[in-house]
Design a binder for these strands. Structure first.
Length: 589
RNA sequence: GCGCCCGUAGCUCAGUUGGAUAGAGCAUCGGAUUUCUACUCCGAGGGUCGCAGGUUCGAAUCCUGCCGGGCGCACCA
């Protein structure tokens, strides 16, 4: 599972929401529902019938386009044999021009073979809606528009972004786009830990470097950052450089060794700017940077502590204030206020999530590394203790594993302590933004990922990004050829002649294209962008197969236009899907 | 030790939240090009779904136990 404890979709969610998916999918569901309602002797409530109704894509084309197992699910409560029930349901199906034929198969499945008419309708929709195809229109079920905040990256401004942050950036941005495609109002947010110990350690490290110390020397501060970039910061600081800040101001390095506060402000401004450059290069843009320091300034931290104390769930022990988080499923109680009077980081963390809720985001998704999964129970427990009506499973988490980088058959070590590690910028420089983006979202987040730099660089079919992008470029190439040959493509002519696309390759491609809206819905519901990446490679594969087996630019103008409609739709879906993943769709390779 | 996650073809991984004969790419082997880009395509072999039980019409999928690996178990963040 890539996600933890996201809300149970509940019974009935097996059926896709009404306002998503293809038109034909919704029509089919309606037809089956009517059939069930028409069966006289089913001793079942309508709600139970709805819950049992699931429609799924068939794996084997011989089984048609869609199949349902309602008869299998209802057989027992109805006290009837599955196949008999299935036969009765089929007999009760209203006539429809989207169904070519229906059959009862296996233990009691009902298979639906769609008519060419159904496909023609869906293909027309792709061409008509263009870049919007697959996205849910802005009028549907209210819960689908629930304002959602997606928090990701949230790296401390204490060094460059490494590959793990890259995975988070790629994942978080794709997730946000996926949710937007489903009609949610999404905010991309970056939580900035600018008030903690880490920043202090950063300042100490720069100061030590300014004094000429190196990691390991006597006098080198404990927990100070060892990276090369610290030395650069120290040099810039002593050179009296100016650095602009995010709020439009400017920080000038004082070049004063004892000016620890000045060192801190200068270093943070520099590193923050570096991170922004990385993210910009990666094509990720945040709507909001939420500063930890503002939580203190606005009294949110204090208010949270007061709220926790008021809850009666706190206690004093060994001079510290504790919260009984074990009451809410945590494995041990947590310190809120240390015996030295300062708060643990857990407090601003809870305060931050309170603001998410109070800002109207009743759905929150946090993208984090699995190494931080211990915080999940804590934050939720803190929110529960406040008793603000926040659901127990708030927020959702998408946890991702670490990334190994292989280059030239060897692992490139990632070690912040050692001071050398692969940064997002390194990767983008080596293989390009598109490859980094695609690679980092093409696998399930929750397993270790090995980034093969050589594969990502290769211009061959082995490289999945290249393979998908090439399919897109290839369609564009076909249209260049069309012009060169002085041929024409008329969409209306093509639309009228879609019945001529009868080759197995064409049927397969049609099937795949029209599946796209369902893929988006599923990927968004499960918070799994890799499903989209996987789909795109399959779509590209089917396109390449088709391309190789058939010439599109034939003399027969009707067939030609029909085929060009099909490949235009293919290109559109590839472009739309890549767009959600933050990958470009080039006209030429 | 406790908690969370992972274990599917030689390798990298999918598997539509319990369905039909477990799929794809790479690698291996065998084929295809006077062609809209061979930057491609077609075919073949390859499996104890970590192991053992359980749940049921039906399990890679859900439950229990074990084996192996990752991560986490601070008055650090």
């Amino acid at each position: 599972m890539a996600t933890m404890d996201h809300p149970d979709p509940g019974p009935g969610k097996l059926r896709p929401p009404r306002d998503s998916g293809t038109l034909t999918l919704k029509d089919l569901l309606d037809l089956i529902e009517s059939a069930l309602a028409a069966l006289p002797d089913l001793p079942l409530e309508p709600a139970a019938l709805r819950d049992a109704l699931a429609l799924e894509r068939t794996r084997d084309p011989a089984h048609g386009d869609f199949a349902t197992n309602v008869a299998l699910r209802l057989a027992k409560p109805a006290r009837r044999k599955p196949r008999d029930l299935a036969t009765a349901i089929v007999a009760a199906l209203p006539a429809s021009d989207i169904i070519e034929r229906t059959e009862v198969a296996g233990p009691g499945f009902i298979n639906f073979h769609l008519s060419p008419h159904a496909y023609a309708g869906e293909l027309a929709r792709v061409l008509e809606e263009g870049p919007r195809y697959g996205a849910v229109p802005a009028s549907g079920e209210p819960d689908r528009h629930e304002p959602t905040v997606v928090e990701f990256v949230s790296a401390n401004p204490t060094g460059p972004l490494h590959v793990g942050h890259g995975r988070q950036a790629a994942l978080g941005d794709a997730l946000a786009a996926l949710l937007q495609s489903q009609g949610h109002a999404v905010q991309r947010e970056y939580y900035y830990n600018d008030a903690g110990v880490q920043i202090h350690n950063l300042a100490l490290a720069v100061q030590a470097r300014v004094r000429g110390l190196k990691p390991g020397d006597t006098g080198w501060p404990e927990n100070a950052y060892a990276g090369e970039y610290i030395q650069e910061l120290a040099a810039d600081f002593m050179a009296g450089k100016k650095e602009h800040t995010q709020d439009g101001g400017e920080v000038r390095a004082s070049a004063d060794v004892d000016d620890l506060d000045g060192i801190r402000r200068f270093a943070v401004a520099c590193l923050r700017n570096e991170q922004d450059l990385d993210l910009q290069k990666f094509g990720v843009k945040f709507d909001v940077y939420y500063l930890e320091s503002s939580l203190y300034a606005d009294g949110k931290v204090e208010a949270t502590v007061n709220g926790l104390v008021a809850s009666g769930k706190t206690f004093e022990q060994d001079g510290a204030l504790w919260l009984r988080t074990t009451d809410y499923g945590d494995d041990k109680d947590r310190v809120v206020r240390k015996s030295d009077g300062t708060y643990t980081y857990f407090v601003p963390d809870v305060a931050y999530h309170v603001t998410k809720w109070e800002r109207g985001f009743h759905r929150a998704i946090n993208v984090q590394g699995t190494d931080h999964h211990g915080t999940v129970a804590r934050v939720r427990a803190g929110l529960q203790a406040l008793d603000m009506g926040i659901p127990a499973q708030y927020p959702d988490y998408v946890l991702h594993n670490m990334v190994k980088v292989m280059r030239g058959g060897e692992e490139v070590k990632i070690s912040k302590r050692a001071g050398s590690y692969v940064t997002v910028r390194d990767l983008v420089d080596w293989v390009g933004r598109d490859a980094v983006r695609f690679f980092l979202v093409m696998r399930q987040p929750n397993s270790e990922f090995t980034f093969d730099v050589d594969l990502a660089r290769s211009r061959s079919e082995e490289n999945p990004v290249y393979y998908v992008q090439y399919a897109h470029a290839r369609v564009s190439s076909v249209f260049r050829q069309l012009r060169d040959k002085g041929m024409t493509h008329a969409r209306e002519v093509g639309a009228r002649n879609l019945h001529r696309l009868t080759a197995p390759h064409e049927r397969a491609l049609l099937r795949r294209i029209t599946q796209y809206p369902e893929v988006l819905t599923t990927a968004a519901r499960l918070l799994e962008p890799h499903q989209l990446a996987h789909y795109l490679t399959e779509l590209a594969s089917e396109f390449h197969t088709y391309y190789n087996a058939h010439t599109f630019l034939v003399d027969d103008a009707e067939l030609r236009s029909a085929r060009l409609n099909l490949v235009t739709a293919t290109r559109q879906v590839i472009a739309n899907g890549l767009g959600i993943l933050g990958v470009s769709a080039p006209e030429t390779m």
